[in-house]
Simulated scan of single mutants.
Amino acid sequence: MNFTILQTEGIQLEGKLAGSTVSVTYTSMLYEQPADNQCFLGLWQNSRIPFGLGSIVTKQISNNQRIGSASFPIHATNVSYIVGWGAGSEAGKSDPNYKSIGASLIFTPGTGSGGITPGVAYQCQIQPIDVSYDSVLVKFTTLPGNTPKSNENWIGLWLNDTLDFNGGYLQKWDVSSSSPEDTQGLEVTDQIKAGTIYTLAYATGNRKSDIVARCTFRTADY
């Protein structure tokens, strides 16, 4: 079945390291309530996210505005730092889920000029690569170091283009791969319809609100 991708989206991070401060601007997912969903930003002294390990500094997102910013103090300027966006807390707890990082911003010494080091951004992505009446084959990309299966990542499918962070999906699948980038076939219980808009989403935690990427597509008419 032919299809057309209408929109893709992920968590957007931008920022710079200047002097002893890392500053970050974020844009969260459309329709998300970052504070209500307990999203957070964490800072690590590392060149990639150490999934499951607590950060040097953790800052909870304090409001439900889609766009916001945060700053972090650092103590050494000759080492790499990375900031990660966490999708939320541990299920049933208030503790940040450090396995749920869905976007990152890396600051590498010596890559800037004038005393300013720009951040290099990475984000999770998902999109269909084949669609049939009974299944959807998707490709997903997460952050280096992520093990989707053990970190309880999942994929959801919604009807139309509005993403529901409360679990209003048509169907949900656990990610079966341990690779941060892979493909997965999703068998559907209700047939995919022609001439219809659907939304796929990728979540990096086990809660219904832990979504960090989406792709909206339209199947071709008969």
Rank of each mutant, 00 (worst) to 15 (best):
K208S: 08
L200E: 00
Q60P: 01
G52D: 01
G68C: 03
Y133P: 00
L200V: 04
W173E: 04
K16T: 12
E9K: 06
S89K: 15
T108E: 15
F40I: 11
T216S: 02
Y26C: 02
T196W: 01
A91K: 11
G52T: 00
K93N: 11
G15L: 03
N64T: 03
P128I: 08
D161N: 10
D161G: 02
I74S: 03
L6H: 07
S69C: 11
A87E: 05
A213F: 09
V120S: 15
N146I: 02
T21L: 13
I116A: 10
C39P: 00
D164F: 05
A76C: 05
Q127E: 14
E14K: 14
S135F: 14
D130F: 13
I197T: 10
T108C: 07
V188C: 11
I106F: 10
G54R: 12
L143A: 10
P50I: 01
T219S: 09
T77S: 14
G52F: 01
S89F: 04
S47K: 12
N37G: 11
T196V: 03
W173P: 07
A121P: 12
Q33L: 14
K208M: 11
S176P: 00
E9R: 06
V22A: 03
L41C: 10
S132R: 05
S94L: 14
S150V: 15
C215Q: 00
T4F: 06
L105T: 02
L186F: 07
K139S: 02
E152Y: 15
F107G: 04
S132E: 06
L200F: 04
F40M: 09
V120W: 13
